[in-house]
Design a protein around this nucleic acid. Structure first.
Length: 640
DNA sequence: TTTAGGG
DNA sequence: CCCTAAA
């Protein structure tokens, strides 16, 4: 099942929806959720309170991570409980049919959302930051695998034969397909899926098993799986598989249309580009796309304060600024700035980060994984993102003060000014987006169950028309929506996914986002887009196991070098994560490995006998190749 | 799309 | 593993 959800990471409180995918006008239906610009971090913090020195550090505590899987438990944020009831949100939400979130603050909603039912609750909330979670059920693929396995003839048998019972790796993999969550072997405990437990044992096409499919992989869009499942022919899929894979891995950055247009065509490499975009954005200042200011919500919020009375201030002023676009730059914007003067020239600034959102992380996790494991994964993902540290920027009345050497006075920061105008931004210090914790793969079959609920819900309660959105925040939501769909899904989105998208769309549109949020969104888009989409993830490294090496050697002995596609088909047809290029590369390294001394070798040791075979096979086929060439040459000569 | 190689 | 020129 692919629950493509987004997680809302709510760190301590008030969440500012970032939704801002608005700016990204993606024209091409580029796949990838990655395109959704997830890596934009959005931090909204408020500096509140008056001088409380030393308290500034108490931020980022209480990180609540909610996930949107259906399972979740709701955890109320411990932050403020605003009375959002008065906000539009309540009403809208109810329309949508999610009564539960009627009141009590957006914050809470987020969490709730995240707790989410598939119902898209998450999406309702301002679409802001959501992390996608792809839940996937392992094992489904095995079906196809086994079928494919059968198609393998003789050779495979012999391989498997020698293999069976012997080697740990492959067999192990067979046993527990779903669990391995992609890249991070993490601590996630994933109980084997009851129904789908793979049983390939009888036909261990050993190399055939594809962890990706069953457990992590996920680089492959669902379509592949589905297709395979129903059509055990391997030949046909090859192409699709590849296409998908390549798309996934190296989709070129989608053209940027809206605000960022300028950058769209640059040939910059992802990282660089991203940076550049950020800068550009900063320079740009206000975001055109953040026109709305719904302040009423803000005001409302201030009502209840559980955070030491800061909220009201924070809400009313900083928020406003944000809305105005002052905070336009930065990936994350922390706002607020109440500082007060204590003595003559000293300020004390209390910085309060109300929320920290990490939009669009991909987490793949089996349906049957525990909530705890999901939490861990989320934590891991977040940690990864934050691992690089954060950069702090200082904003004064929306302007970024870059000169670190200026004194506060020189920079114009003084307590005489409106302190409110002081803001901070946080941006991830990491150049690369966090590695996806998963891959995308989902058996279509499972989807229904998950989806059904949400869907029905949706249908039951008519979703407000996107048209309504404008009232709240015209631009952003729509844009977001469009992007969402396009970017996230490939040519063959599963029905579920499609529905989810729609839902999310609607939700987004519908969701009355506090103005602040809207504004924030406007800002965000840029980053989002620039980021993930551009940064193409490098495939996770997957060292060849001895079993794989053995299979490779056997195949090459039989087929020879120079026909990697055939080798792939023969011995690795089911291992989707091994491309013929991979095999070729592996052979190259094997040959090299065989030539060097054992001491120089790294990684899992390859049995010497295998290496010997590598050398002999290499020698043999090299000779064949040269002979062939000679032959051809002589023929050519004769013809002449 | 595959191969073949360099990075 | 990635990237690409060639085929």
């Amino acid at each position: 099942m692919v629950l493509e959800k987004r997680l809302d990471y709510v760190f301590n409180g008030y969440q500012v929806p970032k939704g801002s995918r608005s700016a990204r006008g993606k024209s091409v239906a580029r796949r990838k959720a990655e395109d959704n610009g997830m890596f934009a971090f959005e931090l909204l913090a408020t500096v509140a309170g008056k001088l409380l020195s030393g308290e500034g550090n108490d931020t980022l505590t209480n990180i609540e991570v909610g996930n949107s899987q259906r399972v979740i438990e709701e955890k109320p944020l411990k932050t403020e409980h605003c009375e959002w009831g008065r906000c539009d949100e309540g009403a809208i939400v109810s329309n949508v049919g999610s009564p539960r979130r009627s009141q009590k603050c957006a914050r809470k909603n987020y969490i709730a959302t995240s707790s989410g039912e598939v119902s898209c609750a998450p999406f309702k909330n301002s679409c802001v930051d959501k992390t996608k979670i792809r839940g996937k059920v392992g094992g489904f693929c095995n079906h196809s695998d086994s079928m494919l396995g059968n198609s393998n003839e003789g050779h495979s048998h012999s391989y498997s034969g020698s293999h069976d019972g012997k080697s740990g790796d492959l067999m192990e993999e067979d046993v527990k397909p779903s669990p391995k969550l992609g890249c991070s072997d993490s601590s996630v405990e994933v109980p084997p899926h009851p129904v789908f437990t793979p049983k390939r044992s009888s036909f261990p096409n050993y190399l055939g098993r594809d962890d990706d499919e069953n457990s992590s992989g996920c680089t492959q869009p669902s379509k592949v799986n589905v297709k395979k499942a129903y059509r055990p022919q391997r030949i046909g899929d090859r192409r699709i598989r590849r296409l998908l894979a390549s798309k996934h891995w190296k989709a070129p950055p989608p053209p940027i249309t809206s605000t960022e247009g300028e950058l769209s065509n640059s040939g910059m490499k992802p990282v660089y580009r991203w940076k550049k975009m950020c800068y550009t954005r900063q320079r740009a200042g206000h975001q055109p796309c953040a026109p709305f200011k719904k302040r009423k919500l803000v005001g409302t919020c201030s009502t209840s304060t559980s955070e030491g009375g800061m909220s009201s201030e924070y809400v009313s002023s900083p928020a406003e600024k944000i809305i105005k676009g002052e905070a336009s730059d930065s990936i994350a914007s922390i706002h607020g700035g109440q500082k007060s003067s204590t003595n003559s020239g000293d300020f004390r600034v209390k910085l309060n980060i109300k929320s920290f959102r990490v939009p669009e992380l991909f987490i793949e996790i089996p349906e049957n994984a525990t909530v705890g494991s999901l939490k861990r994964m989320v934590m891991e993902a977040v940690t990864t993102i934050l691992g690089g540290g954060l950069r702090v920027g200082v904003l004064l009345q929306g302007k970024n003060i870059r000169d670190d050497n200026k004194t506060l006075l020189q920079a114009g920061i003084s307590h005489n000014d409106k302190i409110d105008s002081l803001g901070f931004t946080l941006e991830p210090n990491t150049t690369h987006p966090p590695p996806p914790l998963e891959s995308s793969e989902q058996p279509a079959l499972l989807l229904p169950c998950n989806a059904s609920k949400p869907l029905s819900r949706l249908s039951a309660s008519p979703v407000p028309d996107p048209v309504e959105v404008p009232a709240v925040s015209p631009d952003p939501p729509l844009a977001i929506t469009g992007n969402f769909i396009e970017s996230d899904h490939d040519s063959a989105p599963s029905p579920l996914e499609a529905s989810l998208d729609k839902i999310s769309l609607n939700s987004l549109a519908l969701v009355p986002v506090p103005e602040i949020n809207v504004e924030a969104l406007a800002v965000v888009p840029f980053h989002q887009k620039s980021r993930r989409s551009e940064l193409v993830q490098r495939r996770i490294r997957r060292p060849f196991s001895v079993s794989e090496v053995k299979a490779l050697v056997q195949a090459v002995e039989k087929i020879g070098t120079g026909r990697w596609r055939d080798v792939k088909l023969r011995a690795f047809d089911n291992a989707k994560h091994r491309t013929y290029v991979d095999l070729k590369d592996k052979w190259k390294t094997l040959v090299h490995t065989a030539k060097i001394s054992p001491q120089q070798r790294r990684g899992e040791p390859v049995p010497q006998d295998l290496l010997d075979r590598v050398l002999s096979a290499h020698a043999y086929w090299s000779q064949q190749q040269s002979r062939l060439q000679v032959k051809q040459q002589s023929e050519a000569c004769l013809l002449h």
